[in-house]
Write a protein that binds this DNA or RNA. Structure first.
Length: 270
DNA sequence: ATGGTGGACCTTCCA
């Protein structure tokens, strides 16, 4: 345990993201993980929970304020914060056309504009959902253009459902004709990055391959290390330039009732 | 053997 000593005199904000695949099913794992890692901010995706079912009190007892944008059976995103929840905003604030799904929520936490994002899956390149996915990415970019400033601390975290490079999947040949690796999806992802965001994990570990954020439940994918890197902590330069530590917590995929995604975490001396 | 899992929900959709 050397590194906490090394950074003990720096103000650190610890930010995490986790697609939990049902917060009801995952609550024991989430509370355990919060107690171990003690993030200041946790972005949650796929709560699969109605708005009024969110365990606000239970998180409050652990010291977290929260904002949930819930839908019910599908989707649902939330932000937990020990450093404040200011200007909370569900969805995209671009007028009178709300998204059909609860896929993004925003809040300012400790001076950082934070988004918890769950990008549509796409299903297949021929599916209407694939076009919805591309449009959703464009809408996120437009929201950033209109409402945020990359010279200020901004962090967009979540499940982007895109593997940006071939090395972000265990075997690119297994993805022929599939979503998550097509050029339009990758272009849409990089269009978000190009607004002024840094893939914090890749920046810190440019040569680290084989450490993925998602492993399909089926076919023994996890123990065969057959995963994909589709979850990201994207931070604007004022934040990303202060990165001290980042983690893809593969251990969280082990044990009883894991999510199919693992949590990501980063420490910023901000 | 051409499937393999898991979550929501009620019979099938979604990832």
């Amino acid at each position: 345990m050397l590194w906490p000593v090394l950074v003990a005199n720096l103000p650190i904000v610890r930010i995490a993201s986790w697609n939990v695949n049902s917060l009801n099913a995952r609550m024991p794992r989430v509370t355990e993980w919060l107690q171990i890692m003690e993030p200041d901010i946790l972005c949650i995706q796929e709560t699969k929970m109605a708005q009024d079912a969110f365990p606000t009190d239970e998180f409050a007892q652990m010291g977290y304020e929260s904002i949930h944008h819930g839908q019910g059976r599908w989707n649902g995103v939330a932000i937990l914060s020990k450093v404040g929840i200011d200007d909370p905003s569900p969805d995209f604030s671009d007028g009178d056309d709300p998204d059909s799904d609860a896929r993004i929520v925003w809040a300012t936490c400790g001076g950082i504009r934070v988004a918890s994002a769950y990008v549509p899956n796409g299903r297949t390149p021929e599916d209407d959902h694939y076009q919805y996915k591309l449009a959703w990415f464009a809408r996120l970019r437009a929201h950033l253009d209109a409402n945020c400033d990359p010279s200020q601390p901004v962090a967009v975290l979540g499940d982007f459902n895109v593997a940006p490079e071939d090395r972000d999947v265990w075997d690119i040949k297994a993805f022929e004709g599939a979503t998550h690796v097509t050029k339009p999806e990758r272009d849409a992802f990089y269009n978000i990055v190009d607004w002024g965001l840094v893939d914090v994990f890749r920046e810190q570990y440019p040569d680290q391959d084989g450490l993925y954020s998602y492993y399909d439940y089926t076919k023994g994918r996890f123990h065969k290390r057959e995963g994909i890197r589709i979850d990201f902590i994207l931070a604007s330069e004022p934040l990303a330039s202060t990165t001290k530590f980042s983690l893809v917590d593969r251990n969280a995929r082990k044990g009883e009732k894991p999510s199919d995604h693992v949590p990501l975490m980063a420490d910023f001396a901000f």
